[in-house]
């Protein structure tokens, strides 16, 4: 499902003392099937941007075209079928575990599918499938979501979105507050979902995640899109102008570059890759 932003502007509380222009002239093509990172400091407009993709907010002017579904600044141009859109675009907010509410894990996950009109049995099946996917087996189905650990709660919340089988999955800081092992688990899950054909849009501050998992990165600054490129292209330069930190591997490569050791960073994603490139360079002078 491709997403196109055309001349999108968005203003919070227009014509009030709190008026604030959060998006300014956004023109953006997000291709189907990619793993895309959306980065930028707090307040740069990332969350406002993704909320346009499932029509939680409407542009003040301009159009967002989500594979034919139109979210427009002009009311009569908007596609009416919001439920249809939300089936296809899943949004996992920050700390989604705060939104769990049902008595059992199974019912919590089945809530979304039922809400878009699926029958009880079918919704249950979808819930089981989604829970399996996030690594929570049968023994979890009848437990209360509130007695689970933090990492497990988050998995339940993610399963609730996956149960809708979205074509686009937007995840906002999915690893915040998780320990490294749980964070890695979660990211591997999104990678797998992406490889099965779902477009994943990752909103994050963590540049190490961007370097390791994403095909493309969109940089936002002050309500505008400042860059759209591959992670390697972005991290080849100093990011402090966007108040972002380079991933550790690129940061160290930049230090070496300043000292005259230039590495080809285009295929480097992990510390292991970096070590190999340095070793090769050292051996061949």
């Amino acid at each position: 499902m491709p997403v196109k932003f055309k001349k999108v502007f968005f203003t919070y509380s227009p014509k009030s003392p709190f008026e604030y222009e959060a998006l300014k002239d956004i023109n953006l093509d997000l291709e189907s099937g990619k793993f895309i990172a959306l980065v930028g400091k707090t307040g740069s407009g990332k969350s406002t941007l993704v909320q346009h993709i499932n029509s939680l907010v409407h542009p003040t002017s301009g159009i967002v075209d989500i594979d034919g579904f139109i979210n427009s600044g002009v009311k009569k141009e908007r596609t009416k079928d919001i439920k249809g859109l939300r089936k296809h675009v899943g949004l996992v907010f920050q700390f989604p575990e705060y939104q769990l509410f049902e008595e059992t894990v199974e019912r919590d996950v089945a809530f979304g599918p039922k809400n878009v009109g699926m029958k009880e049995e079918e919704a249950k099946e979808k819930a089981h499938w989604a829970l399996e996917k996030v690594g929570l087996g049968k023994s979890f189905f009848e437990r209360s979501p509130f007695e689970l650990s933090g990492g497990e709660k988050r998995k339940v919340a993610i399963a609730g979105i996956l149960a809708m089988e979205p074509k686009i999955l937007v995840v906002d800081e999915p690893t915040a507050g998780l320990d490294p092992a749980a964070a890695k688990d979660t990211m591997s899950l999104f990678k797998k979902i992406n490889e099965e054909g779902t477009t994943v849009i990752l909103v994050t501050h963590d540049m190490d995640l961007v370097a390791s998992y994403c095909d493309e990165v969109v940089v936002m600054e002050n309500g505008r899109v400042e860059a759209q490129c591959s992670p390697a292209q972005l991290f080849g330069r100093d990011l402090s102008e966007y108040s972002l930190q380079n991933p550790h591997i690129f940061d160290f490569a930049l230090r070496l570059k300043k000292r005259g050791i230039v590495l080809d960073m285009s295929s480097i994603r992990t510390t292991e890759d970096l070590a190999k490139a340095i070793a090769k360079r050292c051996k061949h002078g």
């Binding site: 510390t271 070590a275 190999k276 340095i278 070793a279």
Partner: peptide, 10 residues
């Protein structure tokens, strides 16, 4: 990084 460099013979 040091660990990986050692594995690569540095």
């Amino acid at each position: 990084l040091i660990d990986n460099l050692k594995k690569e013979g540095v």
